[in-house]
């Protein structure tokens, strides 16, 4: 369904500091896959997600969504197919606008925006229904500015916004990393619910190995711009954190250098 072929991305090309951020990435993602993506600092995880979403342009390779070549497409064009949430709770919602206004913008993902009333009665009903699923009571606070919500509530709302228009692909870039443990747990629960409930094809970056093993049906590990490990559902089932660290060390020849991962 989504196919990456020979993706390369350089930063600071032509300077002494040149970095190969993505190094011949080949990846085929099947409809309904829930991939957890893990790797040490600077492995290229976020760069990969940004390349897929079109936030950055790749230097070589091809990105296809359902057979359509989207490699050169602008971010806002690709957005019709791709829902995305960042680590920063401020990034995926508009603070000055109300909950219902945020949802109204997300509801029209990738569509032409005209002079129809953004928050109509019919849409309000749809928004309330979508918010009920996550069980935070936000459906009763539609007119509240999003800036008054907590980080956890904003990320939960961002999940609803990212999925309300049924994108073909959902990209989660450590979307719980900036939250306190309780809020992170809550948002992860909602994530699982939303993703499995809609059978959404998803890539989720996480720093938490235990989380990476627990969620999803496929686990991918990156290192220095390459995909070095790729476990399918059956291989992933019996995986443990120590086993994963060992596997990393033997495959990459490096020591896993991210405290956040090991301590998580």
């Amino acid at each position: 369904m989504i196919k990456l072929t020979g993706i390369e991305k350089y930063f600071f090309a032509g300077t002494p500091n040149a970095i190969k951020a993505l190094d011949s990435i080949n990846l085929e993602i099947k409809q309904g896959d829930f991939i957890t993506l893990i790797g040490s600092n600077g492995a290229g995880k976020s760069t990969l997600l940004k390349a897929i979403a079109g936030v950055i342009n790749v230097d070589a390779g091809k990105i296809e969504i359902e057979g359509e070549d989207v490699t050169g497409q602008a971010e806002h064009v690709r957005a019709r197919d791709i829902g995305r949430i960042d680590q920063d709770p401020m990034a995926s919602t508009a603070a000055e606008l109300s909950i219902e206004e945020n949802l109204a913008m997300a509801y029209l993902r990738g569509q032409r925006r005209g002079l129809a009333k953004a928050v109509s009665t019919r849409r309000t009903a749809i928004f309330q229904e979508a918010l009920q699923v996550i069980g935070l009571g936000l459906e009763n606070r539609l007119k509240v500015p999003v800036g008054t919500l907590s980080g956890g509530q904003r990320q939960a709302l961002a999940l609803v916004m990212a999925t309300i228009a049924r994108p073909k692909l959902l990209l989660l870039d450590e979307h719980t990393a900036a939250l306190d443990p309780n809020a992170a747990k809550l948002v992860m629960g909602i994530t699982e619910q939303v993703v499995s409930g809609n059978k959404l094809t998803t890539i989720m970056i996480t720093h938490n190995m235990e989380q990476a093993i627990r969620y999803g049906n496929r686990l991918i590990m990156m290192h220095r711009g390459r995909i070095i490990l790729d476990f399918d559902a059956s291989e992933k089932k019996d995986l443990t954190v120590p086993a994963l660290v060992n596997k990393f060390t033997s495959t990459s020849g490096a020591v896993f250098d991210d405290d956040r991962v090991l301590l998580a």
Partner: peptide, 20 residues
């Protein structure tokens, strides 16, 4: 309207509305 809201969102969170 949808269009007017997109303008306000551009001021509030440009990155977000582009990703939509």
């Amino acid at each position: 309207t949808d269009l007017g809201l997109a303008i306000r969102a551009t001021g509030s969170n440009e990155r977000m509305i582009r990703s939509l």
